[in-house]
Amino acid sequence: MNNRHTVEFKVNGEARSLEVFSMARLLDVLREQLQLTGTKEGCGEGECGACTVIIDGQIVNSCLVPMAQVNGCEITTIEGVAGGDQLHAVQQAFIDHGGAQCGICTPGMVLAAVDLLNRNPEPTEHDIRNGLAGNLCRCTGYMKIFESVVRAYKK
C-alpha cells in the first residue's frame, strides 16, 4: 500500500508541495522535511503546546495535525513571526522581560501570545492566562511570560 500523497500548502508565505504519508504529523514534516526546527516537540499529545503553529489564523498543536489536513492551508511557524531582522513586539518583549529561560517552550508560547494579541489587542491578566493555558512552561513559573505579553501590547 502506498499511503504517500502530494500535499500543497504555504509555510510562512512560501508555497510548498511535498510527497508525504497522509497520517504523518505536521510537526515531523516541518522539522524533518522542511528543516523548520523552531517548532518543538514536548509531548506529542497536545498537552504542552511546544509544537504550536498557526494554521489559517488559528493556533493548533502541530503534533496532532496529520498532513492530509494541511492541504491548501497557510501555516505560520516561529520562523515566520519576525519580519526579517525586525522582531515581532512579542519576541522583543520576551527577550527584554525574561519571558524565555531554557527556550524550549518559547516558540510555541510566542505564537500563542501573538495569536492572543491578534484576537484581543488589550488582554486582561485573566485573558492572558487563559489564552496561554495550553502552553506549558517548566522554567519561568509564567510570571515573566505574562509580563512580556503585557509589555508587548503596551509598547
Binding site: 522539522r31 522582531l87 527577550i95
Partner: peptide
C-alpha cells in the same frame, strides 16, 4: 541585561539536540 542567547530562542533558531542531523 537581557538573556544573551535570547534572540536565538525567540526566533526558533536556537539548536537543541533533536534539531541537529
Amino acid at each position: 541585561f537581557p538573556r544573551k542567547e535570547g534572540r536565538k530562542k525567540v526566533t526558533g533558531k536556537a539548536l537543541y539536540v533533536d534539531d541537529l542531523s
